[in-house]
């Protein structure tokens, strides 16, 4: 019996229908237009806002692994890598506690580290916002970057 293309199309259509219906009505759905790394309570800002904050002296934190930080980072940012959070946090805790505003960033869309770091900071009573779309948004806007291990 030959394969019927129409049946294949119907199967794909049915799966799409079930998927979208379940997503809308199950109460467990994903907001299709929202990054799944972003949770209720996370605060995000755009690159332009972040640049204005940087110019005002806001503290920036780089949540990527340190190797990325050393390659290039936002000038003045301190490394607070998500994969080594506790150690890095202990080192800069006084500085974090004395900062009014904090912006956390990581490698952008596919990166969850900045959200995780911001939440960990919040758990410790330190409010922090996330730079939406992170490093790529910053560099594509043409904002300054700095190489090396120094902030």
């Amino acid at each position: 019996m030959p394969i019927r293309v129409r049946r294949i199309a119907l199967i794909l259509l049915a799966a799409t229908g079930f998927g979208l219906a379940w997503n809308s009505f199950s109460g467990r759905g994903v907001a299709l237009g929202r990054n799944a790394y972003v949770r209720e309570g996370d605060e995000e800002i755009k690159a332009a806002e972040a640049k204005a904050l940087l110019d005002k002296g806001t503290l920036f934190l780089d949540a990527r692994p340190v190797a990325f930080y050393e390659m290039s980072h936002i000038p003045g940012a301190l490394p607070l890598p998500e994969d080594d959070f506790d150690k890095a946090f202990a080192r800069i805790e006084p500085r974090l506690r004395s900062s009014l505003d904090i912006v956390v960033y990581c490698s952008g869309f596919g990166c969850e580290a900045s959200h995780l770091v911001a939440r960990k900071l919040k758990e410790r009573g330190i409010p922090a916002v996330v730079l939406s779309e992170g490093w790529p948004a910053w560099t594509e806007a043409g904002y300054p970057t700095k190489e090396g291990a120094q902030p």
Partner: peptide, 22 residues
């Protein structure tokens, strides 16, 4: 990604499991 945005990945995650089930 910057080019695709977030919708294709989310839609994929919503539909693929149902395709597997069907």
């Amino acid at each position: 990604s910057a080019a695709l945005g977030v919708v294709p990945a989310n839609a994929f995650a919503v539909i693929l499991p149902w395709l597997e089930a069907v």
